[in-house]
Design a protein around this nucleic acid. Structure first.
Length: 690
DNA sequence: TCTCACACCTTTGAAGTGG
DNA sequence: CCACTTCAAAGGTGTGAGA
């Protein structure tokens, strides 16, 4: 009964199907998802073909078993998972600093553009952070996701980004797990952690696990730290989420701003061939650039010469560090010496900062926002946020890491202390790496996991599933099962995760009759990401700040789990008066939860009016609850979880009313799962260590 | 606004070489 | 064996034409 894995339910989510809430036993997905751990597993798009008999689905669902697995395998799963214990809480206090902050700042000022292509493109600058304050011995899983920053669609007009209307429906959200996860705190802290393998795409049917984005929309990357030595524990672990405002960007299929192009060319080793001293293309292109751009380039060149003679010849030598950031502290000619664009931009109309022209049509934003998507509004809001005092009301702590403003602003550090977060590590931070700028994590505290309002759920759930029915009205248990495709993970990420038992059980999956796994259910080979296992979806939800209903209405470790939700709720804590911001669409930054404490920044918030969700509790209706008994976790430290659940769980509607939909969804899922064996493709991928 | 082929470049790992 | 070098393939870039 206590086994979180087997008693839970989750919402099934499939990008290609209606996103209906599904009451589905986690165990089924556990089993079904295992194959996805194989980095080599790749399933073709058309794999979803064979329907699954209703009786199989229903029966299995009720029994909490995966329809395609034999009882033998089910039992094996139960046994293997039985040993899972939640991580003991540790008083670690991770501090995260963005690497190459200067470069990010440069891009941010110009209005960062990230190219997205059908085949996937990496981010540049790469998202890279340095972590301090972790428990050296404990294991952590690091994740990253990218969420919509606002509700607007943009266009680049007259050298500036302008709001061009309401945002298009969001793409399926995917969580990228760092390939080295899990690793010890010591390992993570040893060197900067890069997420350079994460790829962006605009291909909604992407099967590689890339992060799917909408072109001409603004996004905000988020970084998550989860203390857990096993992926399976993610759902019960405390999430700490860090947001660096300067890393937001507009996704584009082709660069709009020449300045951005130039900056990328000058800093990205792969684009070396386009540098001024490179081939003819650049020469040609340069001649076409505007005077203002020339000035900018000249300035860059001048600055570069000071530090490095030639940008094209001797320059940004990326080195062999796998995770090395081309714009690494020393390699980037622009990073330290180049004067802020501010000066230059002054002379040349500063496109990004015209606060009077564009208005985000977002209905969520009561107050019209300044139009420039890259203004420092976000930072400002954050900065103004009231400081929250302590953090000990509840052990559930979500750290909303927010960059501590500009490096010339020391508020961050100060705030951090105010936040009552032990600031013992400040000194440590100062002594580490090139990025000494103060990035002060924003601690979001929850007094109890049960304070999430429906709006939280909605905002969060919809961040990736905008307009999609996300929560299952089913009573008892609100299935919150993400499609595995929503999770991306570098190959091999699970290799050392103690997933052996699970993998082993996967073999049993072969027993699954037909073979098909959703295209989404693919594991990515080299450079790709693997679909995230269903049972891990909880984790994702948590990271999204969604107060997921516990499995079967029982949740052994509520507070840690709910802590994650705090991240989402963080936004809710914002004063209503605060302008609905550009981040209104961001699940992490929206919502309404008065009891959360924030510090030190104020985040833009929008209060969803929707009442899609209501607090509730699950319960006994969960079909998986029964099976959970067998796989119960007797040692569960959180016996009172149920209570928490009752007050915090999200549930909507009548269970019976949606039962049919749930079954349908279940069938869809089954279709995805079936046929794994035949599709398995073992192509080892090489993942560079962090 | 998007897609694609392209040239140019870096990265990676295997193969070869010498100590 | 180990360290180093060489090499080729894979893969990451922006470009520019065309849709």
């Amino acid at each position: 009964m206590r086994d979180p894995v087997f008693t839970g339910t989750a919402m099934a989510y499939h990008p290609f199907h209606a996103h209906r809430p599904t009451d589905f036993p986690m165990s089924a997905f556990l089993a079904a998802a295992q194959p996805s751990f194989f980095p080599t597993l790749t399933l073709p798009p058309g794999a979803l073909t064979k329907p699954i008999p209703d009786h199989t689905l229903a029966g299995a669902a009720e029994a909490g078993l995966h329809p395609g697995l034999s009882h033998h395998h089910q039992a094996a799963h139960l046994r293997s998972l039985k040993t899972l214990e939640p991580e003991e809480e540790v008083d670690d206090d991770p501090k995260v600093t963005l690497e190459a902050k200067d470069l990010w700042d440069q891009f941010h000022k110009l209005g960062t553009e990230m190219v997205i292509t059908k085949s996937g493109r990496r981010m540049f600058p790469p998202f890279k952070v340095r972590i301090n304050g972790l428990d050296k011995k404990a294991k952590y899983i690091l994740l990253m996701d990218i969420v919509a920053a606002d509700d607007c669609r943009y266009k680049f007009h007259n050298s500036r980004w302008m709001v061009a209307g309401k945002a298009d429906p969001e793409m399926p959200k995917r969580m990228y797990i760092h390939p080295d996860s899990p690793a010890t705190g010591e390992q993570w802290m040893a060197k900067p952690v890069a997420f350079h393998k994460l790829k962006l795409t605009n291909n909604i049917s992407d099967k590689h696990g890339f992060t799917i984005l909408n072109s001409m929309h603004k996004y905000q990357p988020r970084f998550h730290i989860v203390r857990a030595n096993d992926i399976l524990k993610l759902p019960y672990s405390t999430f700490r989420t860090y947001v660096f405002p300067e890393t937001d960007f507009v996704a584009v299929t082709a660069y709009q701003n020449d300045k951005i192009t130039q900056l990328k060319i000058d800093n990205n080793p792969f684009a070396k061939g386009f540098r001024d001293t490179g081939n003819g293309r650049r020469e040609k292109r340069k001649q076409l650039t505007l005077p203002s751009l020339r000035m900018y380039e000249d300035q860059c060149k001048t600055d570069r010469e000071g530090a490095d003679s030639d940008a094209s010849s001797g320059e940004p030598t990326p080195g062999r560090d796998p995770v090395h950031s081309p714009m690494g502290t020393a390699s980037s000619p622009l990073q330290f010496s180049r004067p802020s664009r501010d000066n230059k931009m002054c002379s040349d109309s500063d496109p990004e900062l015209d606060p009077h022209e564009d208005l985000c049509p977002s209905s969520d934003s009561p107050a019209p926002e300044p139009l420039s998507p890259f203004s420092s509004r976000f930072e400002e809001r954050v900065r103004d946020r009231p400081v929250g005092p302590d953090k000990k009301e509840d052990s559930s702590t979500t750290t909303l890491g927010v960059r501590a403003l500009e490096k010339d602003k020391v508020e961050g550090r100060h705030v951090r202390k105010d936040a009552s977060e032990p600031s013992k590590k400040d000194s440590e931070m100062e002594g580490m790496g090139p990025s000494k700028e103060g990035y002060s994590p924003l601690m979001v505290q929850t007094e109890s996991p049960s304070h999430f309002s429906p709006s939280h759920l909605q905002s969060l759930a919809l961040s990736g599933l905008h307009g999609q029915q996300f929560f299952n009205p089913l009573s008892g248990s609100s299935p919150l099962l993400f499609h595995p495709g929503q999770f991306a993970m570098a190959p091999g990420a699970f290799s050392a995760m103690g997933m052996g038992h699970l993998l082993a059980s996967v073999s049993g999956v072969s027993g699954l009759e037909n073979g098909s796994l959703s295209a989404q259910l693919t594991a990515q080979g080299a450079g790709g990401a693997n679909p995230f296992p269903f049972h891990l979806s909880q984790h994702m939800l948590a990271s999204q700040g969604i107060p997921m209903p516990t499995f079967g209405g029982l949740f052994p470790y509520p507070y840690t789990y709910m802590a994650a939700a705090a991240a989402a709720a963080s936004a809710s804590a914002l004063p209503v008066s605060s302008t609905a911001g550009s981040l209104s669409r961001n699940p992490f930054l929206t919502g309404s939860r008065p009891r959360l404490r924030f510090n030190p920044y104020q985040l833009p918030v929008s209060i969803p009016s929707s009442s899609l969700l209501t607090n509730s509790l699950p319960g006994s209706l969960n079909p998986g609850s029964e099976s959970s008994k067998s796989g119960s976790r007797e040692t569960s430290p959180a016996p009172d979880h149920h209570n928490h659940k009752t007050t915090s769980g999200a549930r909507v509607g009548s269970p019976k009313a949606n039962m049919k939909d749930s079954i349908n969804e279940l069938q869809n899922i089954q279709r995805l799962v079936s046929g794994l064996e035949s599709q398995r493709d073992c192509s080892p991928s090489r993942e560079s260590p962090m």
